[in-house]
Design a protein around this nucleic acid. Structure first.
Length: 499
RNA sequence: GUUCCCAUCGUCUAGUGGCCUAGGACACCUCCCUUUCACGGAGGAUACAGGGGUUCAAAUCCCCUUGGGAACGCCA
């Protein structure tokens, strides 16, 4: 049940550290979810840190969208950026890396002072040439900087002349294998020469991911780093920095990637991977969380549908598997339908209504009544998988959108159809009230049956066409009570004029 | 190319040496319910990548092969 902490840590603290460069992606959301589940399962804290050191790509707008998506999903964090004010919230502030520049600078200076890092004055051209050289060797070679051998005084003199430099971490003397005991993958051995001298600080003074990540994780006392597998190779660099600073290392767990149908990393280019898009399409956040959890984790009893509380209660890393998982949209839709239909009708109506309004669907005036609303939800519910489905469903009640579909032609061509529809029309016309009950409809249908002397599909298919313009769909008996006499007459007249 | 990671039905997965003639879910097929389409119910087909070991016993442990993926930036 409880989890071990590395020396130097006193409580479980996890973090999600997105860079605000776009919408929240399901891969990221899943990492956030796992971090939250792990933290909460172990009575720990979940932190949201903003990695905005890439100033060219980070925007405040993205930050807001990202936070909005997290809030929508209910992935609530204990520390980080306040979801409303966007101000720092927590004891380890600031939580935006762009506000922590002085901290990184200080650590870098320390690394430089004790020889663990050095200034490198290579120009872009020189770097390019060096990369070409290394590529030609075609071995496990790395870019080598001629400045690695410079003394600090030499470098400082160069700096004094106004030259700019990056700060590189020195790896030459670290030629040994690094062993990582990954929480999910077990022992991972990184060979000694896997990386060359890597950049800590850019020439403009901005820190690079692997560096600020370590500094922040250390200073924010992050005990467990759960992140996507793509970061596995980064871990070696980070381990080197921890070692260089003599800092206690957290435990790492690398979660598998979320894949596209083609088994490649789910990409923003291949559509609908943004949480925001799922929200707009009418997926429920609970369903997304549930579905994401199942991408790599499994319920101990094999359950497929479970609440966030249940996940927190049962989430353990030993049930997280190491292989990549394809994001199956079809199953996701099924799961969403389960969540959607498990709600009460009033809740569903409240969720559906904005979509109807947005789509400009005009409903009969009875739609203002709760009774009508509940009845409509009840009849359409079996076909609702995502909220946007409601548009097409309710559209069948909008007279201005009434059309006779191509597939109706067959039913309209049947010999007795004209008699059926004429009788239907007369019956509707003769109806005493403006609306119908289920029983009214049954009575009318029976009257048509005897009046036109037709039964079976020859009877009900034409009627359905006269009601919704299609031979298939929702049960007419349930549909008619949602419509008005006027509406039904308009429709049958239109259909009749086609025969 | 180099390094690392991964490998059970089409997909998500259960399985941690005997309970596996491999279980569940989505999708698919059949039937039932239904005067349509759905929903719901009952069945069905479909998988341990291959080859070597270890062991009385292997989907489970080891090795090799093959396949897939990721990373190799002054992106994160």
């Amino acid at each position: 049940m409880s989890v071990t902490l590395n020396p130097g840590f006193t409580e479980v603290r996890t973090r999600f550290a997105p860079s605000p460069t776009g919408y929240l992606h399901v891969g990221g959301a899943r990492s956030a979810l796992f971090n939250l589940l792990f933290a909460k399962h172990n009575n720990g804290k979940f932190i949201l840190r903003i990695e905005d050191t890439d100033q060219a790509r980070s925007t405040e707008e993205s930050l807001k969208m990202m936070i909005q998506d997290m809030v929508w999903l209910g992935l609530n964090w204990d520390e980080g950026v306040d979801p409303v004010t966007l101000k720092d919230m927590g004891a380890y502030a600031p939580y935006r890396q762009s506000d922590r520049l002085a901290i990184y600078k200080k650590v870098a200076d320390e690394l430089i002072a004790n020889g663990k890092a050095y200034y490198c004055f290579m120009t872009d051209e020189e770097l390019e040439a060096e990369r070409a050289r290394v590529k030609a060797i075609n071995q496990n070679a790395h870019v080598e900087s001629p400045y690695e051998t410079w003394t600090l005084d030499q470098a400082k003199a160069e700096l004094a002349k106004g030259k700019t430099a990056v700060v590189r971490f020195r790896t030459k003397h670290l030629r040994k294998d690094y062993l990582l005991n990954d929480l999910i993958r077990g022992e991972v051995r990184f060979p000694s020469d896997m990386v060359g001298d890597f950049v800590l600080l850019r020439s403009d003074g901005m820190p690079v991911y692997n560096f600020c990540c370590v500094v922040d994780d250390y200073m924010m006392k992050i005990s467990h780093v759960l992140r996507a597998e793509e970061h596995l190779p980064n871990t070696l660099r980070q381990l080197m920095i921890y070692e260089g600073m003599n800092w206690p290392t957290p435990q790492f767990g690398h979660i598998s990637l979320v894949l596209d149908d083609d088994r490649q990393k789910l990409s923003k280019r291949k559509g609908a991977v943004a949480c925001d898009q799922f929200m707009k399409d009418g997926y429920l956040p609970e369903a997304l969380n549930n579905f994401m959890a199942l991408l790599g984790w499994s319920h101990p009893e094999g359950k497929e549908i479970f609440s966030m509380d249940e996940m927190i209660k049962l989430f353990t890393l030993d049930r997280v598997n190491a292989s990549g998982a394809v994001f199956d949209r079809v199953k996701f839709k099924w799961m969403n339908a389960q969540y959607l239909r498990a709600q009460d009708n009033q809740t569903i109506w409240n969720q559906v209504k904005p979509y109807l309004v947005a789509a400009g669907i005009s409903l009969p005036k009875e739609a203002g009544d709760t009774a009508w609303q509940m009845k409509s939800v009840e009849t359409f519910k079996p076909k609702l998988e995502i909220l946007t489905d409601a548009v097409a469903l309710y559209q069948s009640l909008d007279d201005s959108k009434f059309e006779i579909s191509e597939e109706s032609n067959e039913a309209l061509s049947w010999e007795p159809t004209k008699a059926v529809l004429t009788t239907w029309k007369n019956q509707i016309e003769a109806h005493a009230t403006e609306t119908f009950t289920e029983a009214d409809f049954v009575a009318i249908e029976n009257a048509v049956k005897t009046g036109a002397n037709v039964k079976g599909k020859n009877l009900f298919m034409p009627i359905r066409v006269a009601v919704i313009g299609k031979p298939h769909g929702t049960e007419v008996k349930l549909l008619v009570p949602l419509m008005t006499k006027q509406s039904l007459l308009t429709r049958v007249n239109k259909v009749l004029s086609r025969i």
